[in-house]
Amino acid sequence: MKTLTEHLGQYAEYHRDRRNIASHFIGIPLIVLAVAVLLSRPGVEVFGLWLSPAALVALASAWFYLRLDLRFGLVMAGLLWLSLWAGAVLAVQGTAVWLGAGLGLFVIGWLIQFIGHYYEGRKPAFVDDLMGLVVGPLFVVAELAFLCGLRDEVRRAVEKRAGPTCIRHGKALG
């Protein structure tokens, strides 16, 4: 299994333009929420928990994140739990609300992603490696941590592999 910095570094190679990274702060959470909503049916409530395909995907994803890094994994598990909660709330609504919310979030999230990649001038990472679909949400959390001055050792390792972030047609701002 690749390490945290190997996954983030590979993903970061496709995401060095600050506008693209900013688009991911909006697009990826919308997509994660959309997947949680859409996979929350069928589901059943057991002991106050909504068990659904979304819960299985979230559990597998959380396990992956926790194996990579405990601190980021705990944050990701918490965010996945929030997505599952929102998905369960929408799953018990009428089909039009559930499906409209899920599909709407999914389409809007991907549109934002593709706008970001227009600025990047590069295809999304998942085109070359499907693991990019799982690493993307972790990348957003890591970038937020880096912006807050946290996990500087991870940021340095990622930038060593991918280079500093920049604005295309401008100077590096890393």
Rank of each mutant, 00 (worst) to 15 (best):
F146Y: 03
V135I: 11
G102I: 04
L173W: 13
R161D: 06
V92D: 13
C166H: 08
V158E: 04
P42D: 10
I112H: 08
G94L: 02
S52V: 12
V46L: 03
A55P: 02
Y65A: 02
L68R: 04
L80E: 06
V35K: 04
R122V: 10
A77N: 01
V46E: 00
A54N: 10
R156G: 09
G73M: 00
Q93N: 08
A36K: 07
A125I: 05
Y65N: 02
P53L: 12
S61K: 07
L33T: 15
L90H: 03
G149K: 06
G109M: 13
L173M: 14
V35T: 12
F114I: 06
V141A: 03
C148Q: 14
G132C: 08
S40L: 00
G132N: 11
A145S: 01
R122L: 09
V44E: 04
A55L: 15
V140S: 14
E143T: 05
V57F: 15
V134C: 12
P137Y: 15
F114W: 15
L66V: 13
V135R: 12
V154F: 01
I108G: 02
A60M: 07
F72Q: 03
L111H: 06
A101M: 11
F146V: 03
V97D: 06
L68P: 14
P137T: 07
F106C: 04
G104P: 13
G149M: 02
G104Q: 05
L80Y: 08
L130K: 00
F146I: 12
L51S: 08
V44M: 14
D69L: 11
R71G: 10
L51G: 04
A55Y: 12
R155F: 11
V44C: 07
W110E: 09
L38W: 05
L56V: 10
R156M: 07
W81R: 11
R156P: 10
H117F: 04
Q113C: 02
G43S: 00
F146D: 03
L82Y: 08
M131L: 08
H169N: 14
L49G: 08
V135Y: 11
L111Y: 08
Q93Y: 02
G170D: 14
A96S: 12
S61L: 12
L68K: 05
R151V: 05
A101W: 01
V97K: 04
A172E: 14
Q93W: 01
V140P: 10
S52W: 13
P137F: 10
R155G: 05
A91Q: 00
A157D: 06
L80M: 05
F106G: 03
L56Q: 07
S40N: 06
E153Q: 11
A34L: 07
L82W: 03
A54I: 04
F47V: 13
G43M: 00
G116W: 03
V140Y: 09
P164T: 01
L38M: 02
F114K: 11
C148G: 12
A58Q: 14
A157C: 00
L74R: 01
L59K: 11
A91W: 00
A77C: 05
V46K: 02
H117M: 07
L99V: 01
V107S: 15
M131Q: 12
I115Q: 12
G78S: 02
